[in-house]
């Protein structure tokens, strides 16, 4: 099979303090509903404005948790490329993301670590903001290839320690 060319960061190219390219998106009713249905989340606060306002007291329908995670995944792999394999992420939600919000992801490399199995890990701190307000804070642990021949996706069992 021919080798396919694509951009993918390697572990040695990443350093503590590096920043990820920001990702901005103008949130719409469509994007929130599309994200909820794509993640099979049928709860009405993610597609029914009256319900969201009257039952949840929110400004409008709001982005569901799996869809925030999907945006996070895109943000990380836009930066790191297809060889990057997310091991774990954690987040704390503040206020809701609603239609009309211009959400922006920003991220920074907090640490780098090579585990006992030779897997290269980077720790990221990521914020999802609207204007000056930080809505959700994330941390993520992502495996990057240690060199151009390495492939984190080939790891399994004891060789994969997320």
């Amino acid at each position: 099979m021919n080798s396919i060319r694509y951009k993918s960061l390697t572990f040695e190219q990443v350093h503590v303090g590096d920043t990820l390219p920001p990702l901005a998106h103008e949130v719409t009713t469509t994007s929130i509903i599309l994200g909820a249905l794509a993640s099979r989340d049928w709860r009405p606060m993610h597609h029914d404005r009256d319900f969201a306002q009257q039952r949840n007291g929110t400004r409008d329908i709001f982005m569901n948790t799996p869809n925030q995670a999907a945006w996070l995944e895109r943000f990380i792999t836009d930066w790191a490329g297809p060889k990057a394999r997310i091991g774990r992420y954690k987040f704390r939600m503040g206020d809701s993301i609603c239609p009309g919000d211009n959400m922006v992801f920003n991220g920074e490399v907090l640490g780098t670590e090579m585990d006992e199995q030779g897997c290269g890990w980077v720790s990221l701190r990521i914020a999802l903001s609207v204007g000056s307000e930080e809505k959700t804070r994330f941390t993520a642990r992502v495996a990057l290839p240690v060199d151009e021949h390495d492939n984190p996706w080939a790891r399994s069992g004891d060789r994969w320690r997320p």
């Binding site: 396919i4 694509y6 998106h25 994007s31 599309l34 994200g35 249905l37 794509a38 993640s39 099979r40 869809n67 999907a70 945006w71 995944e73 895109r74 792999t77 836009d78 297809p82």
Partner: peptide
């Protein structure tokens, strides 16, 4: 579902 989910967040990851 893979593609619907990617489309929802405009995720172009070639993987």
């Amino acid at each position: 579902y893979f593609w619907t989910a990617c489309a929802a967040v405009q995720n172009g990851n070639p993987l």
